[in-house]
């Protein structure tokens, strides 16, 4: 058994855990906008982009990307709130229209980024750098930060979900008319939820920037995986999101040790298709 595990999980299997955390981080923002609010959010990747470039910009101004990483979620949340307030709030329950509008917004933000920062690749420094050993694994410290951030964000949401604010937000999502008739401003709750989703996406973009090269296409590489995780995990379910991220991120991480990244992604997509096909059967049995 241990021989099989050793073959499947090589020594640096911490990177598999880090990849699962990355999947959770990038999909978390989409959980709010698509999973809870039903917006087919094609601009999700661009909020990751905003976070990444915010980190870069502050590195340029202050010499360190840390300030940018702290401010990025607020920048992305503010841009998200503006998009929701001006365009999306008229389009709830019209998924195809949200798809078109967010697609247009994604082009706008991407082109704007290209105008401001040029198409040339940019780098954000790893604020900590280095690696160490933890439980016998080789652990790059920045990847550990990403794992901790994913755990903290999921935990924070689960806690918030049980608070009075979380209950009000859920009420506004599951039965907007009833919530409105009880005195709750549904439009405010929606703006807040969308902004939180964009803020989380911005934070993900900033945290992942040191591990990637920044270009105006930076956010696109995360978009498909984010949708896969949220859809496979059942839109609106945080537990499902984490399980789907573990299945998809874990399988991709393991595959990458044995084959090229492209082949690994193809197999991950295959797993996603099979899992989506089997999920109703599993749920029915449970």
């Amino acid at each position: 058994m241990s021989g099989v595990l050793a073959t499947l999980l090589p020594v640096d299997s911490f990177s598999v855990v880090a990849l699962v955390a990355t999947f959770v981080l990038v999909a978390l923002g989409l959980h709010f906008s698509f999973g809870l609010l039903g917006v087919v959010n094609m601009v999700h990747g661009e909020f990751i982009l905003v976070g990444g470039y915010a980190a870069f910009q502050f590195q340029d101004w202050l010499g360190s990307p840390v300030w940018g990483m702290l401010i990025a979620p607020f920048v992305a949340a503010a841009v998200g709130a503006l998009c929701e307030w001006t365009l999306l709030r008229r389009l709830y329950r019209r998924p195809l229209d949200t798809l078109m509008v967010t697609f247009g917004l994604s082009l706008l933000i991407r082109q704007g980024t290209q105008l401001r920062f040029s198409p040339n690749p940019r780098r954000v420094r790893d604020p900590i750098g280095g690696a160490g050993h933890l439980f016998g694994y080789n652990v790059p410290w920045w990847r550990l930060v990403i794992v901790v951030a994913a755990v903290v964000l999921v935990g924070a949401w689960l806690l918030l979900d049980r608070t009075s604010l979380g209950i009000r937000w859920r009420a506004a999502v599951v039965n907007p008319d009833l919530a409105e008739s009880m005195g709750y401003s549904v439009s405010r709750a929606r703006t807040a939820l969308f902004a939180v989703g964009c803020g989380v996406a911005g934070l993900a973009g900033a945290l992942l920037a040191p591990l990637n090269t920044l270009t105006p296409q930076y956010g696109l590489r995360f978009l498909v995986n984010s949708f896969l995780v949220v859809i496979l995990g059942k839109p609106g379910s945080m537990k499902g999101l984490v399980i789907a991220a573990a299945v998809l991120g874990g399988s991709l991480g393991i595959m990458q040790f044995h084959m090229s990244t492209v082949s690994g992604q193809m197999i991950m997509l295959l797993i996603a298709v099979v899992a989506a096909r089997l999920r109703p059967l599993v749920v029915a049995r449970a």
Binding site: D177, L178, A179, M182
Partner: peptide, 21 residues
């Protein structure tokens, strides 16, 4: 309302808390 008078996924206690918020 005639139908959909409760929030799916929320407990009775959650409803009462919402109502007196």
């Amino acid at each position: 309302p005639q139908v959909n008078g409760v929030f799916a996924g929320l407990t009775v206690a959650d409803h009462l808390e919402l109502a007196r918020h």
